[in-house]
Design a protein around this nucleic acid. Structure first.
Lengths: 144, 144
DNA sequence: ATTTATATGTTGCATATACTACTTTTAACT
DNA sequence: AGTTAAAAGTAGTATATGCAACATATAAAT
């Protein structure tokens, strides 16, 4: 078999242009950068994201976190459960629980914030204003 | 406790500007879009990405795929194993195996390509040239 | 008020991912 | 040649994610 892809010749897009795989790849790169800086703090970049979001939302229904971060409700459920086990989050015992940072959680946010600001500075330095504009652009366009 | 974050007042970046979480979120949105269109083809967006990459690389050492996609070697090992189980990929039995698409694999690439082109058209329509420029910009900057 | 529909949460399952430790192979050095 | 160092692969473990199925609670409709 020759395996000649009939789309290769004048294909409108090349596989390497795939928007999905490129975003995933860039995400992995940036996340890797975050992890390198978080290695001493025993927390993942995803958990940090949720802590930061919750520090702004205060006491909220769990579901709102998923809406804000575009995360499936079951994913939120499990992520929150891990953070609760770590003592960073408290949950009301309702069926539809409201969640909230504990004192430990707020302390962790304060610990992480300067580290995060440092990482941001580095990344902004790497991406430059054009890179940031690009990211904002992507976001705006995806919202609709 | 007051939970007054001393960084809130004149903090250089707001948590919502986090480059990591924003990229992750956009990735989830775009991947979700891909999944919606792939639902009839019993394949994930990640597996499609590897199939497309392999269709260009032909017979390669497994490790090269990880280099190309910025994936950890163990991740590649498992992803390839799943594709092998599906019959899309064949692996030499060496300790350091070379991998290759099977005829089934190439057939799947041909099946997926028009679908993928359609998704790309939609996404390019959503993002526009400015969104695409932004993505390219991010990539260029991350490479260095 | 009862029933129905919708929204929210959790659990089971499968994939995706990275890190560590271990194995094996190849390369380098002497 | 023999030893050491580096590279590549795999398996174990933990987190992250989404979907389907189910449970429960709230809202809507009659």
């Amino acid at each position: 078999m020759q395996h000649i892809n009939r789309y290769i010749c004048p294909m409108k897009y090349d596989y390497s242009e795939c928007i999905g795989s490129r975003l995933r790849k860039i995400s992995r790169m940036v996340d890797s950068h975050f992890r390198q800086h978080l290695v001493d703090f025993d927390i993942t970049e995803n958990q940090m994201t949720i802590l930061f979001a919750m520090s702004k939302m205060k006491k909220v229904e769990q579901g709102r976190i998923g809406k804000y971060l575009y995360l499936e409700k079951s994913t939120v459920s499990r992520n929150i459960k891990l953070l609760e086990k770590r003592g960073f989050v408290s949950r009301s015992s309702d069926y539809r629980p409201t969640v909230e940072l504990t004192d430990e959680g707020y302390k962790m946010v304060e610990t992480l914030t300067p580290v995060w600001l440092g990482i941001m500075d580095e990344l902004v330095g790497v991406l430059g204003s054009s890179g940031l504009d690009g990211l904002r652009n992507l976001e705006t366009k995806m919202r609709t």
